[in-house]
Amino acid sequence: MEPILTINNLTKKFGHLTAVKDLSFQINKGNVYGILGPNGSGKSTTLGIVLNVVNKTYGDFKWFDGETSTHDALKKVGAIIERPNFYPYMTAEQNLKLVCKIKGVNHSKIDEKLEIVGLLDRKNSKFRNYSLGMKQRLAIASALLNDPEILVLDEPTNGLDPQGIHQIREIIKEIANKGTTILLASHLLDEVEKVCTHVVVLRKGVKLYSGRVDDMISSHGFFELKCNNQETLVKYLENHSAISKVLVKDKLVTAFLNEPFDTEAFNKELFNQNIILTHLVQRKESLEEQFLQLTDNN
């Protein structure tokens, strides 16, 4: 796999505070990555360092093959950090022209990218007259101008209303579907869960996990069961070798697996034991449950 960003032992100290501690991970082409972590866990600082606006204390990072300087590499990257920053007295089109000049691409893509984010009809309005949602969409258009190899988004839905959040998510999904590598920092887990294939979990500047979303905790998932004869069911499950733990909450029985178990086989087995289920669902922990489990354990 072709690496896009490699981070090695990156550390950033602000006085006594260590915002990022000995962080290493790699971003490969074609995947959608999420950086997860509570507020103040070092997500934005890490992105700030690789985006040339924050100075690292130790460690190093390299974009692509490490042959180009950071600022030249950034010309092939599209990035949005926190709030959209543009010149308020310029129109959307003028702002994008300025970005084109910095990135060294020609102006031909401006209309196309404004179309993607739905701002084409407002391209001659001044930036200061835009709503926050429009500003954020303009920022995405600006990040896409150079058809970037990777799109870096830091809290892209922060401060938006539900409609704005929905619009931004749809745009991100569309971009991800086209095969663009995305690095998305967020503390909103459902946001990451919906689009990301890989995650890096940070807490207090330390990496807790990096890898595929599905492998975040070694779990084979669980069954949610309902049965009119609950007592027999619970008794049977507690003695079952494939089940590690049974939780009962009102009418719902949750059985945690310690090895892979096929739903059909499980149902058949219970039926043979004369236990008739009224409800059977096999699930994996949601990202939120996994994340809380991971951050609590450490």
Partner: peptide
């Protein structure tokens, strides 16, 4: 002053302008 107050200095650097 405007580059700092609009934070466009940050955006310029992110877009690939060197310091």
């Amino acid at each position: 002053g405007n580059e700092y107050s609009n934070k466009t200095i940050k955006q310029n650097l992110i877009d690939g302008l060197s310091k």
